[in-house]
Design a protein around this nucleic acid. Structure first.
Lengths: 147, 147
DNA sequence: CCCATGTAGTTGCACTGTCAACTATGTCGT
DNA sequence: ACGACATAGTTGACAGTGCAACTACATGGG
């Protein structure tokens, strides 16, 4: 009774939504339980750690993570309250704010990262062949571009 | 500075998380805007519509959707308030409750489904080859099993 | 038969996310 | 130089989710 997809397409589609959903839920719970960080907070720390000066404009950070500015603002609030990140005014643009990783934030990330990555490997990398993983990557890039 | 994955793995991994996240966010907004249904509500209606008698135990429904019972209970609350679903006591087990699709719910689903499926096609099915989609499906099934 | 334990479902609370409104600042056209 | 409009970021109200506690019913062992 539902106008829908062909059975094979439907199975793949549901596997994608359900699998990705469960995966993210699991990783979030794992990080919270083991390290007191939400997945969103962890991702912010990772992005900051990848930059040479460990800081960025809030907007760039939000865009890079596909989060709304409101959401990022609140995530950074929590991280700042925990002392893992600080806000710095941007000299070139007085509207702008940089989020910067603190030493404490870098330490928290180091503590969490190995454990988190182990989980990602266990649940994704290790269960897929290289070819499968690569196909998933290019496929999801196309989807991302289409959205 | 982050102990992490090989670059190629990392790209695929991020494409998966980000792509799936954006996709679901988009579909949820689309459904809300066009039909006043959240994606979670829509999925409940779809599952009910697929059953011959258009009803199930709450728990089965929750399991099928990978939602907690608490979450499903509240989603069904909203659907019931909107008249799209009703709760029926289960005769065999007096603890149990069935969620049942109402005619209004079936109508709401019919109104939303074509539009929603069109969006899924546009963003996923049409941008991927059959082989890619199939690989994504089997890959995410493996991930789902691993979680 | 009864008690211990398990399961179905709901509810209250805390937390996180969305949306819209708002302040402050920057930019462009005239 | 000024006003209109765009952009950066934050805030407050509200919705949805997770978790833990709770009620009600079921089931299996003594």
């Amino acid at each position: 009774m539902t106008p829908w997809l062909e059975p094979q397409q439907q199975r793949s589609w549901r596997a994608l939504v359900d699998g990705a959903g469960r995966l993210v839920t699991h990783l979030d719970r794992h990080l919270r339980g083991a390290h007191g960080l939400s997945l969103a907070e962890y991702e912010v720390l990772v992005r900051l750690s990848e930059l040479s000066d460990h800081q960025v404009h809030m907007s760039e950070l939000a865009a890079g993570l596909s989060h709304s500015r409101a959401r990022l603002s609140q995530t950074v609030d929590r991280l700042a309250r925990a002392g893992l990140v600080t806000r710095l005014p941007c000299p070139q643009d007085r509207r702008g704010v940089h989020a910067a990783l603190t030493p404490g934030g870098a330490a928290a990330l180091r503590a969490a990262a190995a454990d988190h990555v182990r989980e990602v490997r266990r649940l994704v990398i290790d269960v897929l062949s290289d070819a499968e993983l690569a196909t998933v990557g290019t496929a999801m890039d196309k989807v991302r571009a289409a959205v």
